[in-house]
C-alpha cells in the first residue's frame, strides 16, 4: 500500500460531510472520508445502507444535498457523470450496463472512442489499431472468446467482466466497482476478482468496491468502509472492522460471509 497515506497531500478522493435524503429516507448522513492514491478499499453494508448512493454521488449520478467531493483537491460536486469520467473517476455497475445490441468487441470499441479526447466523425471505429487494442483488453480479462457475441449470448460473469473492462479503458485514477461479484456463481467470484486485480496491477489505480462477501472483502481490500443508515460506522482494516461490535450488529449479523448479493 502506498505509504503516502499520512501525508495529507496525496488523497486522490475526499468526501466531506455528504448528505443526501430521498424524502424521509436518509441515504447519506455526514459521510466523510479521504481515500489515498493507489488504495484498494471496500464498501460494505446491508441493502439501503448507502453504499450505492455514495458511489452515485461520487460519480455524478446524484447530487448531494450538502457537502463537497474533492478529486485531486478539485471540487467535483455536482458535475455531470461524463465530466467526472473525463477527469479520471470511472465506475462499473451492479447490473452491467452494456449496449445490448452490440457485440463485446463493439462495446469495447465504444469505450475506446469515448476515451479519446475528440472522438472523430471520420476515423473508423473499427480501425485495425482500435480493434487490436479492444481485443487485447478482452484478452486481459480472458473473455476474448466472446468477442463477436452480443449481450444476450453472454454468461453473467462475462457481462460483469466486460462492464469492468469498459470502465477501465479510459485509464482512470479512481475506479468504483458496484458489487463486482453479485450475480456471479460462487466458484467464479475469486477468479473474477483475481482477473480484475491482475488487470489493474501496476497502474496505481485507486479502487473502491462494494461487496457483500466478507471473504472477498478480507482478501482483496486493505481497508473497509462499513455503512449503516447512510452513515459510515467503521473505517478500518478488514480484521478490525469485522471485530467491531456495531458492524457485527448492523452489517455482518454476527456471522461471517453472506454469500451472494442481490
Amino acid at each position: 500500500m502506498n505509504t503516502a497515506e499520512s501525508s495529507t497531500a496525496d488523497f486522490v478522493l475526499q468526501a466531506k460531510n455528504l448528505n443526501k435524503a430521498f424524502g424521509a429516507v436518509i441515504a447519506a448522513n455526514e459521510v466523510d472520508v479521504a481515500v489515498p492514491r493507489g488504495a484498494v478499499w471496500s464498501l460494505i453494508g446491508s441493502n439501503g445502507a448507502g453504499k450505492t448512493t455514495f458511489v452515485n454521488m461520487v460519480t455524478g449520478y446524484l447530487r448531494p444535498d450538502s457537502g463537497t467531493i474533492l478529486f485531486n483537491d478539485k471540487d467535483i460536486t455536482g458535475l455531470a457523470p461524463r465530466n467526472i469520467t473525463r477527469l479520471g473517476i470511472s465506475r462499473s455497475f451492479q447490473i452491467p450496463q452494456l449496449c445490448a445490441e452490440l457485440t463485446a468487441l463493439e462495446n469495447m470499441l465504444v469505450s475506446l472512442s469515448s476515451a479519446n479526447e475528440q472522438a472523430s466523425f471520420f476515423r473508423p471505429a473499427h480501425s485495425t489499431q482500435s480493434v487490436a487494442n479492444a481485443t487485447e483488453m478482452l484478452e486481459r480479462f480472458r473473455i476474448v472468446d466472446y468477442r463477436d457475441r452480443t449481450m444476450a449470448e453472454l454468461p453473467a460473469g462475462v457481462r460483469k467482466l466486460l462492464d469492468i473492462a469498459m470502465a477501465i479503458t479510459g485509464e482512470p485514477q479512481v475506479l468504483l466497482l458496484d458489487e463486482p461479484t453479485s450475480g456471479v456463481a460462487a466458484e467464479e467470484k475469486y477468479p473474477l476478482m483475481d482477473l480484475v486485480m491482475e488487470a489493474l496491477d501496476g497502474s496505481n489505480v485507486t479502487v473502491m468496491f462494494v461487496e457483500h462477501d466478507m471473504d472477498i472483502v478480507a482478501r482483496y481490500s486493505q481497508r473497509v468502509l462499513a455503512f449503516y443508515d447512510g452513515q459510515i460506522i467503521a473505517n478500518d482494516t478488514p480484521d478490525n472492522v469485522m471485530q467491531d461490535d456495531s458492524v457485527r450488529r448492523y452489517v455482518t449479523g454476527g456471522a461471517v460471509a453472506t454469500p451472494g448479493g442481490v
Binding site: 452494456l98 445490448a100 463493439e106 465504444v110 469515448s114 479519446n116 472522438a119 471505429a125 470502465a167
Partner: peptide, 24 residues
C-alpha cells in the same frame, strides 16, 4: 462507421453507459 457513429449506436442501447464512458 466512425467512432462517433458507433457511439451514437451505443446511445440507442444504453445512454447511461455512454455518459459514464465520458461521451456527451
Amino acid at each position: 462507421n466512425s467512432e462517433r457513429g458507433l457511439t451514437t449506436l451505443a446511445i440507442r442501447d444504453n445512454e447511461l453507459r455512454v455518459e459514464y464512458l465520458g461521451s456527451s
